[in-house]
Design a protein around this nucleic acid. Structure first.
Length: 423
RNA sequence: GGUGGGGUACCGAAGUGGUCAACCGGGGCAGACUGUAAAUCUGCUGGCUUUGCCUUCGAAGGUUCGAGUCCUUCCCCCACCA
């Protein structure tokens, strides 16, 4: 049986474990869980680390359980947050759960004969508690001193923002989750980001106290880029795993743009590529960094994993065209094909002809306001069909559209938007 | 419930009657340079029908020719006390 702990360590996915005996314990198949917060209707690349963690466990023969936090999502985890979170409505959580289920179902193998993955929702067991029952059955076993000692709590208490009772209670719920999965799924290990340490140990203690059982925790590092920024944002937007939120093209591009200083580490964390192969890429990078081979490989691997061969092909094709040469001289057909999965807007012909460049740019979603687009143009960062646009107030005619029906708007080097005329 | 401190743009933070759409820093976006990298330098970072107009400084009222700045009430946060 593959030693998953060694694998995680070697790939930079290991930060710490609650018990030195974990390695020994993992020599026999067990079940492991990680939780996912339904803060959005799609997981983000930031969640990818946890998914990879579960996947590595499954590959090593352990049964992965993905927990979506239908209950905890209603409260909000204070870990790693500097301010009290705005409460999500039950409707919103419900909607987000569906999306996250969708995401997860693509990374874990539910058909595996030895260790099929499971997805569970903690609302199913937390939701049936009354307040009094919960206090008696769970709250009774928690000591305030220990709760106050937790990093996430202490930090928030010291901060200006403080901490509400609801968020303070969060750790009880997550601890109970572990206990519940220990009982019903045979889960003995919880994995999570290092900010989850307190929540995880709370569960382990609860299990020991109520069941006299051994349970383990393992954390992986919170992935940051070399400038210390939390990984997973681009142009101010989170990178989602769902193509409806982040296009194949944008997803692929996000990884292509990885800095040299980060790319080798990211290859280990976000792909299953053998370490020898990654070492080879590192050599290659030293020899000719401008070729960006590791970046290409990273983008390729991750995009294929998340969006399949088809998504990867579309992203690569679009990238080749947009960064390879000029779009000048391309036919409307070609452009439509390339931009099929790039943000685009369909605008009615009568409206488009005669309106200004800025107006259309806002309609296409390139900027939020006309002022923003104007400033962009002023700084020289606005392009219309590949040429710098210096007169953002110009009224457009049919001739401004390729074959009278398509135009490509660009902000800077990286953000493309397609405008298609209707009718 | 009491006392004190505080709520300013994405974040931090200045501003205590007009010259304030609001110093500065971070973040973000863009330009130059480059390798779709990093570092560096530069510009921008309320809205608009843009030589001007409109909406912003927790909320609502009020004083004033004029309020982010003064007064009243309310809401929220923090600390200590009860």
């Amino acid at each position: 049986m593959a030693n998953v702990l060694e694998t995680l360590r070697a790939r930079g996915l290991f930060e710490s474990a609650t018990d030195e005996g974990l390695g020994h314990f993992l020599e026999r198949p067990t079940a492991v869980y990680a939780g996912f917060d339904p803060t959005s209707d799609s997981l983000q690349v930031g969640n990818f680390v946890a998914i990879m963690g579960l996947a590595h466990f499954q590959r090593a023969g352990h049964r992965p359980v993905a927990l979506v936090g239908g209950a905890t999502g209603l409260i909000g985890d204070p870990s790693g947050k500097t301010a009290e979170r705005v409460l999500l409505s039950p409707d919103q959580v419900e909607k987000n759960l569906a999306g996250i289920r969708e995401n997860l179902s693509r990374f874990l193998d539910f058909e595996d004969r030895q260790a099929p993955a499971r997805i569970v929702n903690n609302y199913d067991w937390i939701g049936r508690f009354t307040y009094l029952e919960f206090l008696r059955e769970v709250g009774k076993h928690f000591r305030i001193g220990a709760m106050l000692g937790r990093e996430s709590v202490r930090k928030r208490l010291e901060s200006e923002a403080g901490l509400s009772y609801a968020e303070f209670s969060y750790q009880l719920i997550q601890a109970y989750d572990f206990l519940h999965l220990f009982d019903t799924e045979g889960v003995r290990v919880q994995i999570g980001g290092s900010d989850q340490w307190g929540n995880i140990t709370a569960g382990i203690e609860l299990i020991r106290r109520l069941r006299g059982g051994e349970a383990y925790g393992l954390t992986f590092p919170i992935v940051c880029d070399s400038s210390g920024q939390k990984f997973g944002k681009s142009e101010g937007n989170a990178i989602y795993l769902d193509a409806r939120r982040t296009s194949y093209y944008d997803f692929y591009q996000f990884f292509i743009r990885t800095e040299d200083a980060d790319v080798i580490r990211f290859l280990k964390i976000f792909t299953f590529l053998p370490l020898e192969e990654i070492a080879g890429l590192e050599q290659e990078m030293r020899r000719q960094p401008e070729a960006r081979l590791p970046q290409r490989r990273l983008a390729e691997e991750v995009t294929r994993m998340v969006h399949g061969d088809r998504g990867l092909r579309i992203a690569e094709e679009a990238s080749r065209v947009l960064f390879g040469g000029s779009i000048e001289g391309m036919s409307a057909e070609d452009l439509l094909a390339i931009f099929a999965h790039v943000p685009s807007a369909v605008i009615c012909r009568e409206e488009a002809i005669g309106s200004t460049v800025t107006e259309l740019a806002v309609r296409a979603g390139l900027g939020r306001t006309k002022g923003e687009v104007r400033r962009l143009a002023q700084g020289g960062g606005l392009y219309w069909n590949g040429r710098r646009m210096t007169e953002p107030e110009r009224h457009l005619g049919v001739g401004d559209f390729i074959e009278g029906r398509v135009a490509v708007l660009r902000a800077g080097k990286k953000q493309f938007h397609l405008i298609r005329l209707d009718g």
